[in-house]
Design a binder for these strands. Sequence first.
RNA 1: GGGCGCGUAGCUCAGUGGGAGAGCGCUCGCUUCACACGCGAGAGGUCGCUGGUUCGAAACCAGCCGCGCCCACCA
Length: 863
Amino acid sequence: MPDERLKNLESKTRYDHGEVEQRIFDAWLETGAFHPPAEGTPEENFSVAIPPPNVTGALHMGHALNGAIQDVLVRMRRMQGRNALWILGTDHAGIATQSVVEKELRAEGISRHDLGREAFLERVWEWKERYGSRIVEQYKRLGASCDYERQRFTLDEGYVRAVHRVFVELHRKGYIYRDNYIVNWDPGSRSAISDLEVENREVSDTLYEIDYPLEGSDRVLTVATVRPETMLADTAVAVHPDDERYEALVGSHCVLPLVGRRLPVIADEHVDPEFGTGALKITPGHDPNDFDIGRAHGLEEITVIGEDGRMTEAAGEAFAGMSVAEAQEAVVAALRAEGRLRDEQPYAHSVPFSHRSGERIEPLISLQWFCRMDELAKPAIAVVERDEVRIVPDQWKRVYLDWMGKIRPWCISRQLWWGHRLPVWYCDACEETYVAEQRPQRCGACDGELRQEEDVLDTWFSSAIWPFATLGWPDDTAELRAFYPTDFMTTAREILFLWVARMIMTGLEFAGDVPFTDVYVHSVIQAPDGRRMSKSLGTGIDPIETIDEHGADALRFGLLAMSSTQDVRYSEPKVQQGQDLANKMWNASRLILLNAADVSALARDEEGRLVPQLARAEDRWILSRLQRTIGSVSEKLDAYDFAHAALELYRFFWSELCDWYLEIVKPRLYEGEEGVSATLLYTLREFLALAHPLMPFVTEEIYAHLPGAEGMLVSGPFPAMHDALVDDAAESEIEAAIELTRALRRWRDLAGVPARIVLQARLAGAAEAHELVERLARISLDGAAGEAVATVGPVEILESEGVDPAQVRERIDERRRTLAAEVKRAEGKLANAGFVERAPDEVVEAEREKLELYLAELAELGG
RNA sequence: GGGCGCGUAGCUCAGUGGGAGAGCGCUCGCUUCACACGCGAGAGGUCGCUGGUUCGAAACCAGCCGCGCCCACCA
């Protein structure tokens, strides 16, 4: 008899995710399961640090997949009894956040400079307090089992201390230094950016050839350039040392048109004699390549383009104040007027753009802070080589190692206001520089006033210490002792260098161990048409809308099922498949729960689970299939193969449990048989627990309706495979019955037998579990005498109502043709001496058996 | 320029040496007392092309064609 708790199941034929999810999530929070105590050792515990989303951000499909993957693992380990911590927090995201607030200001008609630094930062903090938690709320919608009570922010008080400690230590060790160096200048954000924030795009430019007259001669040296405006800052012309055409000219000078400066002709290996004229104009102030050549040859560094992207005074009266584009036009016109322009032709090449602002990078020499990476990289290379940090799939291991092997200094200063201001102070009186965790009172040398560095750190500098800074480093905290190193990190490949590599370096340097032991590189979810999913392209799909429509479980299932290590196109049908599965689980559970007999008197194991009953072959079969599913899903999750784990759960539940087992046992269930009730409830409970990490809401909701259910699924236990329940004999028996049922159904359908008709037939040979075949194929095996019109396996079908002899003949002929083809194929194979001699015995034997079966069936059909 | 990856059913993708698979879509039949977000049955593929290795190749090797991504200082 259904008790009160089950009443509401009777009429609800749809699983209503909207009604369930918020309620279940609140119940989880209340259990405290997401907030583990800082006890035990990192080996016993399981911890994951979330890739901290930007405070400006809203959840996108990348977050949703990334979050679903982490949540699956964290939930599974938690259910397996590990003390599991999923560290949550947000990133201050320097440029992104500053831009949002500046945009707000612009709408009010003011700039950040009108406000001043202090007032502006107050505005940003206000903004952060108001909107910064939006993405965290969205992670809750996804069902993410993060520790919401231990949230960190990369600019919170303790985190700032950690950043300062790291900066000061790296400086003390000589890795951090200040230098005038060519940087990627982003005129959009008016800041330097790192190499990794630059993206190259293919651009159509014009390649100009310009004649530089040689001093004391009427000959010219022709150089090729796509940026004629930078010639104003040329300080040399270079040729290849082995280039015979120019051998004699090395050491002489030419005269820079428009400017008149004497330029030495130098020899350098970087010049490609094949390109253009083989002579390269050298502009150390505005080209990274030329900068290196310039430093190698001790050339003068002239700057003609300012940080605002306009020509400076040094460009000369004629050009000062122009934009770069205007200057290019003007320079070309002037050269043409002087007859120095030899040639111009269209030229396609790749050009750096700012990943932040989208503007074309202007290489400039600028006084910036850098961090030398080569020493830090060494141990970070070693731990990956030794698989102390495993990168999955392992093709990324090589990509990582290649990049780390040629790592270059990192420009860490940014000309922004929002971020970690460098812990550096200057004394203007005596030019002393102080690098310290705390602001020194006064200059130690001259007692002068100190002025703090204006620049802030690259956002990734603070992200780089995320796994240990979030646990309270540099203090020796209980969290750090219990949860560091973490176990798992997952990202799309785009931040492998930007973030993952840097965490490994700082983890080893400061926390004394790797930050995590496994890195899993997951899919990039593309738009359905294969383009990038992005708001600006209009190709974005909002996960929150998808959750509203299909449910969080459906989205999680869909993303996990479509994901792999390749890029994949977003496929809404996969999400629908997840929703369908949730609904199927709901309805199958209704069937079971509303019809199960009272099992309160039956035996339970020490964890409160019903002991399954092995009464019949089908019971042993489903329990055996369940064990194999538990084994295979666990194995796949352990190997981060989420797509196959999801599809395996789907297949077991839908095909084996619903399509076959439930249909087979319905009569026993309706009769109120205790044994089958116990087996069903056991199987359902185990399945719900197995599926819970992937589809937490629907499984938890159903679990609450299970008779005798205690606690919540979220707290486990996670099913383990019981070898004792694996039963090969039961599996082959039921599978044979299933195959026979399907063959009979196929025959019926093709022979045009209406669904209503119960076919009369008799058993000619042995058939396992033939009662279930009778019912599921709508056939009666009681028929005694009479002419058989057809044979399907061991079943002889008799003439009965609805059997159309013509269609039957057609069906038999078709089957005969299929069999004949198979016989021919098998005989051909077995006639091949090479096959029989060289193929493994079991393969040959299997082929022989198949041939015998075909021949036997063919004989039954009358040749 | 270097590297990585992809090309399998109409669509999105599994399958990595022994008879081509899933979901969706399509066709036919079912108002079967859990579910029409359902049930049963079916159609549909020279596995990009060419050669090679092998008794046997969608899978392994080579070349070619097409597509994508990452890295890179040839102006």
